[in-house]
Design a binder for these strands. Structure first.
Ligand code: SF4
Ligand code: SF4
Lengths: 139, 139
DNA sequence: ACAAATAAGATATGTTTAGTCTTATATCAA
DNA sequence: TTGATATAAGACTAAACATATCTTATTTGT
């Protein structure tokens, strides 16, 4: 895998929305400025998050973004994989056909297990957890 | 992180050398053909592995590559990081200065822990383990 | 001296990333 | 119903990176 800039921005965006409260409708401009994300780039990312159902986008004057569900039901894995696709440490894990050896390859198994552990770990972290940790760090 | 093609080739190269026996001197041509690696590209990768002390390169006629130590003392992490640099899930983990928030950022901690776990896991797999697993799969 | 083999640097080539630009569409409010 | 505000969607661009290959030099054994 590789966390691209877009993936990092997606996490920042969702975290900022979570921080503003579950129901808050926040303009793209505000998110972009406060979370330090290039505005137009954020637009692309938000559209992907919306397609995935993680956020809702309101168009037109007074529009903006809001979370479509509670922060404790959104995990880091979801947000990241929405943007960069399924996390894969080696291509052969995602597409076993890409290497003819994959069914008898010992290395393949190592990648598979490492990937599974990483995904499980990230899937265990919700944005509610992140908010709570932020509180702890601040206070 | 991201396992590049070069990283994958490095693992294949070391695994092939381990398979041929710890002391065996194997020509680049043989490694390239048997492990399915473009010859000149393998040369570059081998040079990096040699600089790191993982393999030894003998120049001149009758030259080639050999492991410089036992397969049970070479881990996947070592080989991979020799080629692609330290595994990093997010840039801020490797270079905290790259994001001003890193010391108060809850997300940062998640990346840090995930990265540590992944590296530990890969550091626990030696090429002797891989050879043993290959035996098990074959037999 | 010659042949075999790797070293090292320069040079493509293709893909991905990161971001911008432009035009269209939706919404609110006067 | 018109204008201002805001996002949608797709085309486009520039830079970085990955994946090699080519060329010339150097090393080594016979
Ligand atoms: S050799 Fe093994 S690890 Fe490498 S690509 Fe093929 S299956 Fe995957
Ligand atoms: S916001 Fe947090 S996770 Fe993102 S780059 Fe900065 S420190 Fe790292």
């Amino acid at each position: 895998m590789r966390l691209t800039r877009a993936g990092e921005y997606a996490v920042r965006c969702v975290l900022y929305l979570a921080r503003r409260g579950p129901g808050a409708l926040v303009s793209r401009k505000e998110v972009a400025e406060e979370a330090d994300i290039p505005g137009q780039f954020l637009a692309k990312i938000a559209q992907q998050l919306a397609r995935q159902g993680i956020i809702e986008i309101m168009q037109g004057a007074g529009g903006g973004y809001r979370l479509s569900t509670d922060p404790d039901r959104i995990t880091m894995l979801e947000v990241i994989e929405t943007i960069i696709g399924e996390i894969a440490l080696n291509d052969c894990v995602l597409r076993p056909g890409s290497c003819g050896n994959s069914d008898i390859c010992a290395v393949h198994r190592v990648w598979g297990e490492a990937q599974a552990r990483l995904r499980d770990h990230l899937n265990g972290v919700t944005f509610a957890d992140l908010l709570a940790e932020e509180e702890r760090l601040r206070g």
